[in-house]
């Protein structure tokens, strides 16, 4: 049976992890590659790097991080943040990324998603949607509006309609972040997650708001998510990936068991 995925996400700036990761016994807690190795050992199902490097000159630092990660870690890696051109995607995939996540560029140029999916295949094109609760979307119905630039810029787009359109444009997956819940650690926006997940035939990754293991369960059970993305609860070792998987398995969610280190014979 296909299992639900747990995806730890690291914010990377100038090639270093930001948003204090507090692993004990880690040689270099600021190095994304070291943290990726820890998550690999714990049985994470995929990894996500969000590149928040602001300066143009330092944008290549993420490529070095991806190259070094791909040498050590053999699970799928998604990279997002600042991807605007076909060439950006090509360089990330060549460095060893498996998928790229496109956000602002998709809103500004929806055809970019189409071109990227045609060139590289839908399987590696993730469209990231940052959504906020709104009551004034298209026709006055309560719903969610798409935002860009980390939640600063409104777009007037209805998140559910946008999700459907991106699927039609060739997105292989949707990374859905609730800007209302992000960073609050009091649970995912379950209504938003379910609304999108039930409207598109591609997988949906829920993001924004995980604080407890029950929140992960709710994202799957109520939100109908195919995967969950989480940062803080894993970075601060509130819970390990293994604990999260044991808990979810007890609740009847199909998950791949946390990895016990295996030696290759």
């Amino acid at each position: 049976m296909l299992t639900k995925r747990i995806i730890p996400c690291l914010d990377v700036k100038d090639g270093r992890v930001v948003k204090g990761v507090s692993f004990v016994n880690l040689r270099d807690a600021g190095d994304p590659v070291h943290i990726a190795q820890v998550y690999d050992r714990e049985g994470a199902d995929e990894l996500c790097f969000l590149d928040i490097t602001a300066s143009h000159e330092k944008r290549d630092t993420i490529l070095d991080v991806v190259i070094r990660t791909a040498e050590q870690v053999f699970m799928p890696l998604t990279v997002g943040g600042g991807i605007r051109t076909i060439e950006d995607i090509r360089r990330l995939l060549e460095a060893g990324a498996d998928k790229v996540s496109i956000n602002t560029a998709a809103v500004e140029h929806p055809d970019f998603v189409k071109a990227a999916a045609n060139r590289f295949g839908s399987q590696c094109i993730v469209v990231a949607i940052d959504a906020k609760r709104a009551t004034t979307c298209e026709g006055g119905e309560p719903g969610w509006e798409v935002f860009t630039h980390g939640g600063r810029n409104s777009t007037g787009l209805d998140a559910v309609e946008w999700g459907k359109r991106m699927k039609d444009y060739g997105a292989g997956e949707i990374l859905l972040t609730s800007m209302d819940q992000d960073g609050r650690q009091d649970g995912y926006d379950l209504a938003l997650t379910a609304a999108i997940s039930e409207s598109v035939s591609i997988p949906v990754i829920a993001s924004g708001g995980a604080g407890t293991l029950q929140h992960l369960y709710e994202a799957f059970h109520v939100g109908k998510a195919d995967a969950v993305l989480a940062a803080s609860i894993f970075h601060y070792q509130t819970f390990s990936i293994g604990q999260a998987k044991s808990y979810l398995a007890q609740q009847g969610i199909p998950v791949r068991p946390g990895t016990v280190p295996v030696s290759i014979s």
Binding site: L2, T3, Q123, E173, E198, S199, I202, P203, D226
Partner: peptide, 20 residues
């Protein structure tokens, strides 16, 4: 095969993730 195209399906396409 897609059970339905309106999204309310338990089998999303692509088949993406860990399976046995």
């Amino acid at each position: 095969p897609r059970p339905s195209d309106d999204g309310a399906t338990s089998f999303k396409i692509p088949h993406m993730g860990w399976n046995t």
